[in-house]
Write a protein that binds this DNA or RNA. Structure first.
Lengths: 121, 121
DNA sequence: CTAAAATGTAAGATATTCTTACCAGATGTA
DNA sequence: TACATCTGGTAAGAATATCTTACATTTTAG
């Protein structure tokens, strides 16, 4: 039936993909930075190719995310509802104070947009 | 002379070996725990075989050392010191998925730019 | 010194990764 | 709409790495 191809559990790949997109990079750009071909990056993200420790290290630097997070090591963690929430929270810690302030306003605006007139039980 | 065998820069292997000895484990024991053959562990430590991200993760747990240390990362520190960070995280958890997506883009835009290279094969 | 345990290494078998190419979806433009 | 471009997924044979077993060397303990 299945002849030797193994799908990996993946979560690292998914996180790497999330992180790449957040960094605003294409697979091709990342491939160039790592000295890989684009399909390799694609396979890594889909869990069809393993990431070596060195590659992982470089990717974390490029995306500016922590090794622990990418590998799924439980860190304090905020809330487990949406996987992207974790990432977003992590990204927040990298903003400078001014940006963080602006962001708080953006968040506030988003919320009042939607539930204007709601009372919060 | 040398036909296609590549020696890796290694430092990860050296650290893993160091960590293993500190943990008081033999290569054989570690190999069993990881479901590998002993020679594979030997090759990893000597830098003749790559360590995958998952293997690295498990090894770090077994040896009780941090990922950052093993890969030689300058002890990175994300400081959760800023009280506003917590507030922002709390706010994030209240957003709906769409807003969260939009927010991720806002954050990405805020991030001072990364390099841009070119792309597709 | 000897025995046992641990580690290093060789070689063919097996599996993964690379490389190139092509395809489809998305996006922007005239 | 039609067209060009960018992006990401995947296939297939070639290239390379890893596995597995066996044996050699080193280390440790008695």
């Amino acid at each position: 039936m299945n002849d030797s191809i193994q799908k990996r559990s993946n979560s690292i790949g998914v996180r790497l993909k999330e992180a790449r997109k957040l960094a605003g990079l294409s697979q091709g750009q990342v491939a160039n930075m790592l000295g890989l071909h684009r399909p390799s990056v694609s396979e890594i993200e889909s869990g069809n190719r393993r990431v070596s420790a060195e590659e992982l290290h470089r990717l974390c630097d490029i995306y500016d995310v922590s090794l622990d997070w990418v590998v799924g090591k439980a860190s304090g963690s905020i809330s487990p509802d949406d996987p992207r929430l974790e990432l977003a929270a992590r990204e927040l810690s990298k903003l400078n104070p001014d940006d963080l302030n602006r962001l708080l306003h953006v968040i506030a605006a988003m919320r009042s947009d939607k539930d204007s007139g709601e009372g919060n039980t």
